[in-house]
Simulated scan of single mutants.
Amino acid sequence: MANSHRAIFFTILLLLAVAAAATASSAGFSPLSPYYYSKICPKALPAIRRVVEAAVSRERRMGASLLRLHFHDCFVQGCDGSILLDATPTIDSEKTALPNNNSARGFEVIDMIKAEVDKACGGKPVVSCADILAVAARDSVVALGGPSWEVQLGRRDSTDLPALKSSFQKQGLNERDLVALSGGHTIGFSQCQFFRNRIFNETADNIDAEFARERRASCFAGSGDANLGSLDGSPARFDGSYFKNLVEKKGLLHSDQALFAGGSTDSVVKGYGSNNGRSFWFDFASSMVKMGNIKPLTGNLGQIRVNCRKVNA
Rank of each mutant, 00 (worst) to 15 (best):
V289T: 11
S128G: 14
K270V: 13
G63L: 06
D177C: 08
R6S: 04
S287L: 09
L16C: 09
L16G: 14
A143W: 01
A134D: 05
I113T: 00
K95C: 13
G122Q: 09
K310M: 12
R237P: 02
R49T: 10
L153E: 15
T298C: 01
A115V: 09
R50K: 10
S279Y: 00
A285S: 15
K95N: 13
Q193G: 08
C129I: 03
S255D: 01
L85M: 12
A64E: 14
S82R: 11
D177Q: 07
A22T: 11
L69M: 00
E175W: 12
V135H: 05
I294C: 01
H70D: 04
C192P: 07
P99Q: 09
G183L: 01
K170M: 13
S33A: 07
P235R: 08
L253H: 02
C41Q: 05
A19T: 10
G28S: 05
A97E: 15
K250E: 12
F282P: 02
K124M: 08
S287Q: 04
V142N: 04
G251C: 11
F194W: 03
R309N: 11
G299Y: 05
P42L: 01
S82F: 07
S128M: 11
G188Y: 09
A136W: 01
G154Y: 01
L66V: 12
L32E: 00
N201L: 07
R215N: 13
V18F: 06
A64V: 04
A163S: 15
A261T: 04
D111K: 03
S65N: 09
H254K: 09
L69P: 00
G299D: 10
S26H: 07
L231H: 05
T90Q: 10
N293F: 12
D232K: 05
L259I: 05
S264M: 10
L32Y: 00
Q152E: 15
G123F: 03
R105K: 13
A17F: 06
T11V: 13
R105L: 08
P162Q: 03
L253T: 10
A137H: 02
A64N: 11
H254D: 07
F195T: 07
A180N: 06
R155Y: 03
I110W: 01
N227G: 00
E175P: 06
R61D: 08
A27K: 04
A24D: 08
E202I: 08
S82P: 13
T96G: 10
L231V: 08
S218N: 00
C129D: 06
K170C: 13
L301M: 13
G188N: 01
L13K: 02
V306E: 15
N245Y: 01
T265H: 04
A143S: 09
E214A: 11
S182E: 13
K43V: 04
S148G: 15
G145R: 03
G184N: 11
T265W: 03
G240F: 09
A221G: 11
G123C: 00
V52F: 05
V247T: 02
M112Q: 10
Q303D: 04
D157G: 07
K310T: 02
F280P: 06
G263P: 12
G106K: 07
R6K: 06
I40H: 11
P125H: 13
